[in-house]
C-alpha cells in the first residue's frame, strides 16, 4: 500500500490536498464539537456543558501544573484549542481513510513535519511575544544572556532545538503509527509475507496497534500542550 497524494499549485506554493483537507476537517470537527457542547449554557450545567467544562478544566490543569498562579491565565484558551486540535488530528488518520482513484484524501495532518512545524512555530512565537510583552524588548533580548553572558550562543541554539524537538517529536510519533498501520494493512491484504496466515495474524495486531495509536495520539497531544506551557513559562519568568 503506497500513499499517493494529489498536489495543487497556487501562487507558487504547493498544497498537498490530503493535508489541507485533513487540517480543515480537523478544524471543523473541533469547532463543531465545541460549538455543539457549548449550546444552552446554564448556571446548572447539563450533560453537554459538563463535558465541555471537564475539557476546559483538563486543559486549564495542564497550564496550572506548569504555572500555578494567575500568570497562566492568558494561555488557558490557547492550550485548550491546541490540545483539542492535536487530539483530533492525531487520531483522525486512525478512524478515517478516504481514497479516490488511489489518491489518499484524509490522513492525520500531524503525521507530516510541514504541519507540526508551523504548530510548534506558533507556540514558540507566542512564547517569545509574551516574553517581550512582559520584559520589554530590551529585557527580552537581555534574557538570552542569562544567567551569564557566555550562555548566549547556547540559549540561541536552545531556541532552535526547542522548535525542532517540539515539532519532530509529534511528527515522528504520529507518522510511525501511520507507517505501522500501513504495513499491517499490507499484511492483511496478503501483500506481505505469507498469504492467509499473515492476514489472520495481522488483524488482531492491527486492532491492538490502532488502540495503542489512539493512546499515543492523546499522550502526544498532552505532551505538546505541556511543553508549550513550559516554553511559555520559561519566557515569562527569569531563572
Amino acid at each position: 500500500m503506497e500513499n499517493k497524494y494529489q498536489y495543487l499549485t497556487f501562487l507558487g506554493l504547493t498544497f498537498n490536498v490530503a493535508n489541507c483537507l485533513s487540517i480543515i476537517l480537523t478544524a471543523l470537527v473541533v469547532f463543531f464539537l465545541v460549538f455543539f457542547l457549548s449550546r444552552k449554557l446554564t448556571m446548572r450545567p447539563g450533560k453537554r456543558q459538563n463535558v465541555l467544562e471537564y475539557l476546559i478544566d483538563f486543559s486549564n490543569g495542564i497550564v496550572k501544573s506548569i504555572m500555578p498562579g494567575d500568570e497562566g491565565k492568558p494561555f488557558y484558551f490557547y492550550i485548550f484549542v491546541l490540545f483539542l486540535f492535536l487530539l483530533v488530528s492525531n487520531v483522525l488518520g486512525l478512524f478515517l481513510e478516504i481514497k479516490v482513484n488511489g489518491f489518499t484524501f484524509t490522513k492525520s495532518p500531524t503525521a507530516d513535519p510541514m504541519v507540526t512545524m508551523p504548530l510548534a512555530l506558533m507556540s514558540l512565537v507566542l512564547a517569545h511575544y509574551y516574553g517581550a510583552e512582559k520584559y520589554g524588548l530590551k529585557g527580552y533580548l537581555g534574557n538570552f544572556a542569562r544567567p551569564v553572558g557566555f550562555m548566549l550562543p547556547m540559549n540561541l541554539i536552545e531556541e532552535f532545538t526547542n522548535f525542532l524537538t517540539l515539532s519532530l517529536r509529534l511528527y515522528g510519533n504520529i507518522f510511525a503509527g501511520e507507517v505501522l498501520i500501513g504495513l499491517l494493512v499490507m499484511m492483511t491484504q496478503g501483500a506481505g509475507l505469507s498469504g492467509i496466515l499473515g492476514t489472520v495474524a495481522a488483524i488482531p495486531m492491527m486492532m491492538i496497534w490502532q488502540g495503542f495509536s489512539v493512546f499515543i495520539g492523546a499522550v502526544q497531544a498532552y505532551i505538546f500542550a505541556t511543553l508549550t506551557c513550559v516554553y511559555f513559562s520559561r519566557k515569562i519568568t527569569r531563572e
Binding site: 489541507c20 469547532f31 510541514m114 512545524m117
Partner: peptide, 25 residues
C-alpha cells in the same frame, strides 16, 4: 509529501479556529 502550502493552510485554519472558538464557545 508535505509542502509549504500546508503550513500556510494550517496556520490560517488554526487562527480561524482560535477566533471562532473564542467568540462562540
Amino acid at each position: 509529501d508535505g509542502s509549504l502550502g500546508d503550513s500556510l493552510v494550517l496556520i490560517i485554519a488554526f487562527i480561524l479556529l482560535l477566533i471562532l472558538l473564542k467568540i462562540f464557545a
